[in-house]
């Protein structure tokens, strides 16, 4: 790794609007603003976490970056192995193939992400096969290597996915993602479908692989204790927008957005004697097809003032690398997570 890590991915003004069509003629009557003006970057070897409630657009963002979805607007600049920047968002479908090998995905559901009709070898070797590794023995050697890397016995090569547990399946998914030696891995809730004990193993495996292979991660999650453990920086999303982006320790100890404060207060503390002051936001998550005026969070925010109802706040820089989208960010003194309580996954 170089002394000054370069950015591997720059996302700028990313938008993904899904049209809502009604009637016989399928007239477009509105849009679901799943992702609305998202900007962030990931450095080489860094882990950026994307957190938020269900439906806040974090999965859509990750799928746009991999171009499983075509963004409505915005730029996704990916730095290739050769050092040049390519805008993934504007590339034609055919031009994506060489890029596909450099960014890969780990899926949330270890059961639906592996084809039940294929053996483990076939599953892990598929990226190799479709990218021109024709020789069977080469592929099998690489599969053995990868299985070793994710700590699965090579003796399992000829088994089918049904013979594995959730955690083992997730390891197989990781092996497949690593097959082509990617630089960036988008992990869409990679551990949220697993048992807590298995979560720890998989999370630690991911960190271990990052160390060894110099991977960059975009880590989509909703479990903050996992996020705290793995990420260098965290971006909090609410109704398609990033509301706060900060280095992990900073964000956890001193959040600058009321929504982040509410999320942090919901993290369970593993101590039965401790009473937690959980902050429950009023009402429901806003509808991304019809977001509230002004700050999208204002109907649920306990600090909201008149200005929040009319004026949309910008994502403004606070102290040291800390961005927040709140009019009152400087004035409020929001509660973070008390130290001394290590997250459950360590």
């Amino acid at each position: 790794m170089t002394a000054e890590p370069q950015t591997i991915l720059e996302v700028e003004g990313l938008r993904k609007w899904f049209p809502i069509s009604r009637g016989l003629l399928r007239r477009v009557v509105g849009h679901v603003r799943a992702v609305d003006d998202v900007t962030f970057s990931i450095k080489h070897g860094e882990t950026l976490s994307l957190v938020g409630e269900s439906g806040c657009g974090k999965t859509t963002t990750s799928r746009c970056i991999l171009r499983a979805l075509t963004p409505t607007d915005g730029a996704i600049r990916f730095r290739t192995e050769t050092g040049e920047q390519v805008d993934v968002a504007k590339l034609p479908k055919a031009g994506l193939r060489p890029l596909r090998r450099q960014m890969q995905m780990i899926f949330q559901d270890p059961f639906s992400s592996l084809n039940p009709r294929m053996t483990i070898t076939d599953i892990i070797a598929e990226p190799l096969l479709v990218n021109g590794v024709r020789d069977l023995e080469t592929r099998r050697r690489r599969v053995r290597e990868l299985l070793d890397l994710v700590q699965l016995p090579a003796a399992y090569m000829n088994r089918f996915p049904h013979a594995f547990s959730g955690g083992q399946r997730q390891r197989i998914g990781i092996a497949r993602a690593l097959a082509l030696n990617p630089a960036l891995i988008v992990a869409d809730e990679p551990v949220s479908a697993l048992d807590v004990s298995v979560q720890a193993q998989v999370v630690n495996l991911l960190l271990d692989l990052q160390d060894r292979l110099g991977l960059s991660y975009l880590f989509v999650a909703h479990d903050l204790s996992v996020v705290k453990h793995v990420s260098d920086r965290v971006a909090v999303m609410y109704v398609g927008k990033i509301v706060e982006l900060a280095p992990t320790a900073d964000l956890f100890t001193r959040p600058r957005h009321p929504y982040t404060e509410a999320l942090l207060s919901a993290v369970p503390v593993p101590d039965p004697r401790r009473r937690t002051g959980r902050i429950v936001p009023l009402g429901e998550v806003a509808d991304p097809a019809n977001p509230p005026s002004g700050c999208h969070f204002h109907p649920r925010c306990r600090y909201a003032v008149e200005r929040c109802r009319v004026e949309i706040p910008a994502l403004r820089p606070m102290a040291d690398d800390h961005l927040a989208r709140c009019h009152l960010a400087e004035e409020l003194n929001l509660a973070g997570v008390q130290e001394g309580h290590p997250p459950a996954t360590t």
């Binding site: 499983a68 090998r101 497949r176």
Partner: peptide, 14 residues
């Protein structure tokens, strides 16, 4: 909509 289909797509399968 299955993830394994998407995985194949992301791997660059035709």
């Amino acid at each position: 909509e299955e993830d394994f289909v998407m995985a194949a797509e992301l791997a660059g399968a035709s």
